[in-house]
Computed example of a mutant assay.
Amino acid sequence: MPPRPSRLRPVWLTVGFFLTGLGFLGLVLPGFPGTVFFILAAAAFAKGDPKWEAWLLSRPVVGELISDYRAGRGMPLRAKWIACVCIVLAVGVSLTRIPILAGQVAWGLVGLAGIWFITLRTPTKRP
Rank of each mutant, 00 (worst) to 15 (best):
T35K: 03
T124S: 06
P99A: 06
L112W: 00
T35L: 03
L56S: 05
K47V: 00
V15D: 07
E53H: 08
R78F: 05
F37H: 09
L95E: 09
R121V: 08
R9G: 10
Y69P: 00
M1W: 02
P5K: 15
V88N: 03
L120S: 05
V88G: 09
L101F: 12
R121H: 09
R97K: 12
T124Q: 05
K47P: 00
D49P: 08
S6W: 11
L13A: 04
V91P: 08
P2Q: 14
P76Y: 01
A54L: 10
K80T: 02
L57E: 09
S58G: 07
G92H: 03
R4Q: 14
L22W: 13
P76M: 00
G72S: 06
D68C: 00
K80Q: 02
P76F: 02
R97Q: 14
P60K: 09
F32Y: 14
L112Q: 01
L101I: 11
V85D: 03
A106D: 06
E64K: 14
L89P: 07
L22G: 10
G31C: 04
T96L: 11
G31M: 03
P127H: 02
L29E: 09
L29N: 08
A83S: 13
I98H: 01
A44H: 07
G16M: 10
P127V: 00
G111V: 02
S6F: 10
L13K: 06
T35V: 15
R126V: 12
D49G: 10
G63Y: 01
G21D: 11
V88M: 04
P76N: 02
I100Q: 14
A106N: 04
A43V: 11
A113F: 10
T119R: 15
P123S: 05
V61R: 11
R78P: 03
L120G: 05
W52C: 05
D68M: 04
I118V: 15
L112I: 04
G74M: 04
L19D: 11
M75P: 00
V61E: 04
